[in-house]
Design a protein around this nucleic acid. Structure first.
Lengths: 113, 113
DNA sequence: TCCTTGGTCCAATATTCTTTGAACTAGGCT
DNA sequence: AGCCTAGTTCAAAGAATATTGGACCAAGGA
């Protein structure tokens, strides 16, 4: 039986956890790319970090409530919890995404995916 | 001769550094209180942490570009770099402050100051 | 001058976060 | 079955953060 990936409820999303999740450039790159291109699989980010390390970063984003991960066959598909997040912390995610877009090295990471 | 406290230029403020600074509840309490009550001295926050520890947290906020610290006699006076921050990352600080206000334990910290 | 107030600085510890390799599992294809 | 793809798990090592105590310093008042 496959383990159910745990996601916090929308109302339980914690500000410290979200800021903590988004303070890392690799994690911001993942989030930015999903924001711009929609659902992505983990392997789309192998140019950012090793496989093991990606598992770690994706788990942090998921546990913070920033992304949702669903299992489809052998792959994990990642989406942004944009609406839920914006209801809980209005304006926060858009502001951070805008900041991420201004960052050339980060934008380059997103390009190269 | 008194050391000149270093503050990053407005354009040099880094998103990772800002999120890093604001991910800590003690630091958010400091920022929230200065946002609501205007200029404050370090000692206003002694109920949040020890003296030494406050020096540390205040330095992190300053080095991230979130607050400005000026020396007046024996005291350090703290203000928010609200306008500069909002020009660099529009909407970010307001969103985080709004989130902080929703947080009962944090709001209680601000009350008790 | 001595004392108090308001903080700083340093060094040590504790904790937490990040990264890695090696071994593993689960699904799907042939 | 055997193999590949996609990703997980674990343990260990390394790096960064947080917290504390003790000594210190500078300004201002008695």
């Amino acid at each position: 039986m496959s383990k159910a990936l745990s996601h916090p409820e929308a109302e339980a999303i914690d500000l410290s956890a979200v800021l903590d999740a988004l303070r890392d450039p690799i994690r911001r790159a993942i989030v930015l790319m999903v924001a711009e291109q929609g659902e992505k699989r983990c392997s789309s980010f192998l140019h950012c970090a090793t496989k093991t390390n990606l598992t770690y970063h994706v788990a942090r984003l998921r546990e913070a409530g920033v992304i949702r991960v669903r299992v489809e066959g052998p792959a994990r598909l990642i989406t942004l919890r944009q609406d839920e997040l914006d209801r809980r912390f209005p304006g926060l995610l858009p502001a951070i995404l805008a900041g991420a877009r201004q960052d050339p090295p980060l934008a380059r990471l997103v390009e190269s995916a």
